[in-house]
């Protein structure tokens, strides 16, 4: 028997730009960095609020800097992508049975958006009241 000389095709480091779905996936993974940034931003803001009026004013000045504004705009776009893609993936991971029948995927997706609206509404009420 002759020895098999199978050819192993190398995987290009640009594999993720070749297909739209791969690209979206890598963008979703990348979005976690911006999620982390937003958490950090929030924590620093709360810290500034806790340290009094002048610290908070300092933070506001920092947040108004064009670079920070631009960074936050990019972060918002990535967080929106993160949210929308994860919400639409949830029904695959979550199988909910109600009285013996499986809850359809759109109900699970819709309830997440309802949850988002409720939480957003509560937080805005809390902040602006």
């Amino acid at each position: 028997m002759t020895e098999l000389r199978a050819y192993r095709r190398p995987v290009s480091i640009w594999w993720w730009v070749r297909k739209r779905s791969y690209f979206l996936f890598v963008m979703r993974e990348l979005s976690s960095i911006f999620v982390a940034w937003s958490v950090l931003f929030l924590v620093v803001m709360i810290g500034a609020v806790a340290r009094g009026a002048s610290a908070y004013q300092q933070f506001i000045d920092f947040a108004a800097h064009p670079v920070v504004v631009a960074l936050n705009a990019v972060a918002l776009a990535f967080i929106a992508l993160h949210t929308v893609t994860w919400f639409s993936l949830t029904p695959q991971a979550l199988v909910v049975q109600v009285r013996g029948t499986r809850v359809p995927g759109w109900v699970i997706i819709a309830s997440q958006y309802v949850g988002l609206v409720v939480v957003t509404g509560f937080v805005s009420w809390l902040v602006t009241r």
Binding site: K19, S21, Y22, F25, E29, L89, Q92, A93
Partner: peptide, 22 residues
């Protein structure tokens, strides 16, 4: 990492990505 392509290309609609997340 839940790319989800396995489910998209499956000719028998098995949804392997769903199985993995579950």
């Amino acid at each position: 990492t839940f790319v989800g392509e396995c489910t998209r290309v499956c000719p028998k609609h098995v949804d392997p990505a769903g199985a993995i997340q579950r």
